[in-house]
Computed example of a mutant assay.
Amino acid sequence: MSKKTAAPKDAPHKARRQRLPADERREQIIDGAVAFFARVGLEGKTRDLAKDLGITQSLLFNYFETKDALIEAVYAQVYIDRLSPDWPVLLADRSVPLRSRLLAFYSDYSKLIFEYEWMRIFMFSGLAGAELNRRYLEHMHKMILHPLLEEVRAASSQGIMPDMEDLWNLHGGIVYIGIRQHIYRMPCPENPGPAIERTVDRFLQAFSVPLS
Rank of each mutant, 00 (worst) to 15 (best):
P187S: 06
K111C: 07
T56D: 04
R47W: 04
V34L: 09
S156A: 05
P12H: 08
H139A: 14
V209L: 10
R82T: 07
I113E: 10
D201G: 11
A7D: 08
G129T: 15
P189A: 08
L90P: 01
M143Y: 14
D10Y: 15
G178M: 08
N133F: 13
N191H: 09
L149F: 08
P147D: 14
A7K: 15
Q57W: 04
E131H: 15
H182Q: 10
R94W: 03
A76I: 04
A155P: 02
D68I: 01
R120G: 10
I144P: 14
W87S: 06
P88C: 06
N169P: 06
I183D: 08
G126T: 12
M143N: 11
N169I: 15
A7F: 12
R202Y: 06
P97Q: 04
A33M: 00
L102V: 05
G41M: 09
D68N: 12
M119H: 15
A128E: 11
G44R: 00
T5R: 15
I71V: 11
A104I: 04
Y106T: 00
H182C: 07
P210Y: 07
R120Q: 11
P210L: 08
K67I: 05
A11S: 14
T56F: 00
P162E: 05
T66R: 07
L20K: 02
R94Y: 02
S156Y: 02
V34G: 08
M119V: 13
E150T: 12
F36P: 00
S212V: 14
K4E: 12
R134E: 15
L91I: 03
R25Q: 11
H182W: 15
D163Q: 09
K111D: 13
L103A: 12
F61A: 03
P162D: 09
A128R: 10
T66H: 07
L127T: 13
S156G: 08
R26G: 00
P8L: 12
L59W: 03
A104K: 08
N133T: 11
I160A: 12
P162I: 03
I160P: 02
Y109S: 05
P210S: 06
E115P: 09
I121H: 06
K111Q: 14
M119E: 14
V96F: 01
L127G: 14
Q205L: 12
R25H: 02
E43A: 07
H13E: 12
A76W: 01
Q28Y: 09
A195G: 08
F114V: 05
P21V: 02
M143A: 15
A33C: 10
L148Y: 07
W87K: 03
A206N: 03
E65I: 01
L91C: 03
P8N: 07
R94F: 08
F61K: 02
Y184S: 09
D48Y: 10
A104G: 11
E151L: 00
Y79E: 01
R17L: 04
K14E: 10
E138K: 15
L137H: 13
K51W: 09
V74Y: 00
A154S: 13
D68P: 05
L98A: 06
R198I: 09
P189Y: 13
K9W: 11
Y109W: 12
F114P: 07
L91T: 02
P187N: 08
R82L: 06
L102R: 04
K4G: 09
F203C: 07
G178S: 14
D68C: 00
F64L: 05
